[in-house]
Design a protein around this nucleic acid. Structure first.
Length: 203
DNA sequence: TGTCCGATTGGT
DNA sequence: CCAATCGGACAG
């Protein structure tokens, strides 16, 4: 599992740009269970105080979303529906709360470990990291990884070839119908050719 | 302190 | 379509 760790400057940009560029990169997590990794194939940009769908909408700041206000290149992990965790990558400089939600990966390494963690009988590989909650479960990402530095440590993102524009789809974000006009903005990015992408089939 | 509901998932 | 399951956000 080699490859350069993405430098902090990669994340010090608007979430829309970071989201697009994150496609194709490799998320790695080394735990006591063993290493797991996957290629990022679906993400969503959350754009800060002006974005009704963002946890930082209106400048909301609390213990839960504090990581969003921290330096770029860190994880923002939150607990949702009493069951699942979701992982975001924090963007931009401190006090500018933008982030990118990781929604799906193509499993690359540690597939047996992922399958064991998912506790889904005979889960096919393409299902292991499909969806933000599923991805965290398979990768062993929980509350403990909130605020983790992605540039050094057990949870990190490695550089890998960019996905060409013709293979990238843009759609509205999923599960944010409450966000009014912002619900329709095309801030979800997904790799068309990937079988691991969540939701409805892309074109 | 009490109520409401979510950036989800998997099974019916 | 719906239950699972809990803690954040906000009203009072």
């Amino acid at each position: 599992m080699s490859g350069r760790v993405l430098p902090r400057t990669f994340y010090a940009d608007p979430s829309l740009r970071v989201a697009r560029r994150l496609l194709g990169k490799l998320l790695v997590h080394e735990t006591a269970d063993g290493p797991t990794s996957g290629r990022i194939v679906e993400v969503e940009a959350y754009r800060g105080p002006a974005d009704r769908a963002a946890h930082s909408f209106g400048g909301r700041r609390s213990a839960r979303n504090e990581a969003m206000y921290g330096p770029p290149g860190h994880a923002y992990v939150y607990f949702i529906y009493g069951i699942h965790f979701c992982m975001n990558v924090v963007c931009r400089e401190p006090d500018v709360p933008e982030a990118v939600l990781l929604r799906a990966l193509e499993p690359v390494a540690g597939i047996a470990v992922m399958r064991a963690r998912r506790a889904l009988a005979d889960a096919p590989e393409w299902r292991l990291c499909r969806g933000p909650g599923a991805l965290c479960r398979a990768m062993g990402i929980t509350r403990a990884e909130n605020n983790a530095d992605l540039c050094r440590g057990a949870l990190r993102i490695l550089d890998a070839p960019d996905v060409p524009a013709r293979d990238v789809a843009r759609t509205p974000r999923i599960g944010v119908d409450y966000a009014g006009a912002d619900a329709a903005r095309p801030w979800r990015f997904a790799v068309r050719s990937s079988w691991a992408v969540s939701g409805r089939r892309l074109r």
